[in-house]
Design a protein around this nucleic acid. Sequence first.
RNA 1: GCCGGUGUGGCGGAACAGGCAGACGCAAGGGACUUAAAAUCCCUCGGUGGCGACACCAUACCGGUUCGAUCCCGGUCACCGGCACCA
Length: 818
Amino acid sequence: MKYEFHKIEKKWQKIWEEEKTYAAVNGGGKPKFYALVEFPYPSGEGLHVGHPRPYTAMDIVARKRRMEGYNVLFPIGFDAFGLPTENYAIKHRLHPRTVTERNIKRFTEQLKTLGYSFDWDRVIDTTDPSYYKWTQWIFLKLFENGLAYKTEMPVNWCTSCKCVLANEEVVDGVCERCGSEVIRKEKSQWMLGITKYAQRLIDDLDGLDFIERVKTQQKNWIGRSTGAEVDFATTAGDTMTVFTTRPDTLFGATYMVMAPEHELVDRWARIITNFGEVEAYRLEAARKSELERTELSKEKTGVELRGVRAVNPVTGAEIPIYISDYVLATYGTGCIMAVPGHDQRDWEFARVFGLPVIEVVKGGDVEKAAYEDCDEGVMVNSGFLNGLPVEEAKRRMTDWLAAKGLGREKVNYKLRDWVFARQRYWGEPIPIVICPRCGYVPLPEEQLPLLLPEVESYEPTDNGESPLAKMRDWVETVCPKCGGKAERETDTMPQWAGSSWYFLRYMDPRNDRALASREALQYWNRVDWYNGGMEHTTLHLLYSRFWHKFLYDIGVVPTPEPYAKRTSHGMILGEDGQKMSKSRGNVINPTDIVNQYGADTMRLYIMFIGDFEKAATWSSEAVKGCKRFLDRVWNLGEKLASDKSGGEEHLKANEASLHRTIKKVGDDIEAMKFNTAIAAMMALVNEFYEKGAGRGDFRTLLTLLSPFAPHIAEELWELMGFGGAGLCCRQPWPAYDESKTVETEKTIAIQVNGKLKGTVTVPADADDETVVAAASGEEKVKNLMEGMELAKAIVVKNKLVNLILKPKKLDNRPDGGL
RNA sequence: GCCGGUGUGGCGGAACAGGCAGACGCAAGGGACUUAAAAUCCCUCGGUGGCGACACCAUACCGGUUCGAUCCCGGUCACCGGCACCA
């Protein structure tokens, strides 16, 4: 009989579905384990070969945990709001709902052919009103707690999507999604106060089992820096407060710079004698897109504000004030003290405008470049700081400023609040009513979900308003507070909203009274192991940690952190080593591979392809190797099945390898070294072919293989008649005996003077004398020892012996020869 | 520029508390079985020299520590990822 994977895979998928083999139960005596993968965006292209890599990996982990006796929750769902669907719907004159349903159906079918052990009873869809009701509910809670607010501010505006973007969505000055130009636009926006959580988002990383690069990337993104705020008096009477990480260099501050947008510029409009010139510069800066602003960063530009000067609080000197776009309005206080001697940007600006450069830290040559080093160098030209090292000077100056009431210690973050509104249709409506008398009024909870209205056209508008704004009978409503005429908020939430809490919904997906019951939240507690892409580190992963902390603070969830462990997989590249894309024509469709070789081969290959954490290049040729391996397993199984003894004997010859393989496969799964786990099983099968195998040996192999290739494992399990009606995936994970993983004899390497000369077989754990004697007895070593004596022997137990030889002293020669 | 990471056969990749470099697989070559092909099975497979048992050179490059270095240390080069005028 041939290995008919099509028939076998369909058969077992049907059985698992009917038996609900992998359904999780909320409660019971077993310990719980929550394994999570990032739920897919159901795009029109269907499943991508990038999906099966993390999904198969976590499926293997989930299956192993079940065999180890855990009650496993391994859910899946769909993150279905979003622009591609909406754009596709517009183009084909369909409703986004229709498109979404069709895509979800297709994704579901494709995922099912891969035999994942998802709990299909818990599937969620973020666009389902019974789901987004709770997304809206969380928004109301954020609003209630002052963490959702609306403000007028410059935002990133994608010219093609006609929609604002979060800072995290702007990459290299262009839209992360469509690659179009992003410009700055002044707009009234809903914001979420993630910056209030900045410190906790850094601190709590310490207790988590996240891979290191995720932690550092999040820390860098949040970008904490400590320094001081310093107040500068001005001749206009207003105080200019700046943030600096180098208060020690205050004596070297020779001028000030403000962001062009800074409000003080407006306030001083009448005092500034060259206001026309200033306005012109401001207009020019505002017109620049993100891209231009970063690209044109070569030469510093700016305009002095004539008529106003600032006073350096330590020197008492009056110094000029400039505006320049190298100072960001959104960081710190929007203005800086410039220390051209010790900040390269200030140095460049000073050179363009011929401003004085004062050296206040000795060690560099401020004529040639700014000297920024903090570790070496002592203070000069700095009054009471002279002679101090930099770190000490920072402390002294901060204390001095605090004592005088001119400054204070300050921590700043690069992280900015989260722009939480999109001017598009296919997203969660924001449940807020704008009342001319009461302001922003939250919708009462009982009115949730606030449904998306049926709209004729989803076309984005050019004036920056959501398509919902055109739905007058939806927009016009009454104020829940005063009952007067009012309007609904017409922006929708960004795609990141639904995915910021989805893992909680899986715990209790059909609950209509809460996002999940208290018991369910308590029971599943938090995700034990979450695997996902590095590209989500500063977006989804950070956002969802923020939401979770908020939910913890208001007593909804029992833990301050949502994920105990986070790992990440590398990308699958096309056969040409390039990122897969339609335009390159190098896209691999996993369903094609399943049809040609079967799901088990697909699963095995995607895990065997290389180091899980690194990018890997797809090879259509190499897939065959995994298929051959399964063929060999199948053929061996058939042969053994014909033995009707029904016994489960083990061959003594396989004992050590078998125990070693159990250990290796188990350890490798935990370390996500799936490629070497598979290699170990391949080696074991090769050994079975050489030495033969007992039915018991094969039984163990099947249990090890079943998380990787579950269909063939079940079929052979049944064919062999193991475990009666019990499925292979219900068997306990095999145990190994450490003492049996060691061989009784070891082949060790012989080195002479550090060079490999051969090998010798000795009993395991043989002592040094035995090893040296055995090595010295080897023919080749004997020859090399001719005329030499053994100076030293280094023995590494069970591994190697190194004999250090040197020429024999001719000690019978008479001294001096006299 | 800053912060991470990675450089190993024709290819994907193993081996890292310093201890036989190249597991496992792909491709390639040879052989067996076939009328033939596919499939399967067996053998070879880092480089150079030699008929040969063998010798020498090889883990991006240069140096160091060590009995011994792909691994540790110093320097150089290349590639990948993240951040990027964050004061």
